[in-house]
Design a protein around this nucleic acid. Structure first.
Lengths: 127, 127
DNA sequence: CAGACCTTGACACAACTGTGTTAAGGTTTG
DNA sequence: CAAACCTTAACACAGTTGTGTCAAGGTCTG
């Protein structure tokens, strides 16, 4: 046997067996299995489990956070969507002078009712 | 006034005023303020608020998740640590034959007690 | 100058997270 | 073959998240 069982791994890493299973469900560390289904933790997994502890402790991140980070790097769809959302900078269409945006109160009210449909329009950032 | 107040912004984006403040605290969308401290939502913010809704709905991510993603791209320290953790691939030291790792039960027990200190050691992945 | 907005702060509450414990059953081994 | 492991599933429970609502007080506008 060149690997540790879940209780042994728990002992060396400081996690509880329960948490090792939880961490596995999140997808952060999943050990290989023996023929009969026992989890087998090799040195690589033990290492990751220990550094995982440090990571969480030092930078106040949660397992869920890491789980999401994992999703970000595995699922290009989600990654792309998130990336795109963050990247979205105000594009100036230039066909409309910035100062004109919502210059009339009445127009403003109308637009409110209309749900401000023209989402591509934009404004200057007056400090 | 070239921007919407919080209630107006709420109406056009579908978020509640309460949630707009919450989203702001998370750091995802923070509108500029008027002299007297009123939140002022410009078109850029409204846009982000709407796409934020889509993002959450379509890909089952939470505000907290996005908050963490934000932290990842703002705080290079955290980003580095997380990146490093994910990147950590099993390095084979090669000065020790893979099959030798924990070959003796007694050694194994000793190593358990010692906390398996040699974290850089590694193992082959026997499928 | 009163009514309708805005501000922050706090109480509340369901749903989810992180974690332990226990139950029912399979595996490994002295 | 019984003790000591392992497995999954479930109940439990405190803490966090997401969300509403209310309170005390400032601001804007007809």
């Amino acid at each position: 046997m060149d690997a540790l069982t879940i209780h042994e791994a728990a002992e060396t890493t400081g996690w509880s067996p329960r948490m090792l299973r939880y961490i596995e469900r999140i997808g952060l560390v999943d050990p290989r299995r023996s023929e009969s289904g026992y989890r087998l933790y090799g040195a690589a997994e033990l290492q990751r489990l220990r550094t995982l502890r440090e990571l969480l402790a030092e930078h106040d991140v949660g397992l869920g956070d890491l789980g999401f980070a994992l999703r970000l790097r595995r699922d290009p769809e989600v990654r792309g969507a998130v990336e795109a959302w963050f990247e979205a900078r105000p594009e100036r269409p230039a066909d409309v002078p910035a100062d004109d945006w919502l210059s009339f109160e009445q127009q403003r009210h109308q637009r409110l009712l209309a749900g401000l449909a023209a989402t591509t329009t934009n404004v200057t950032e007056p400090a």
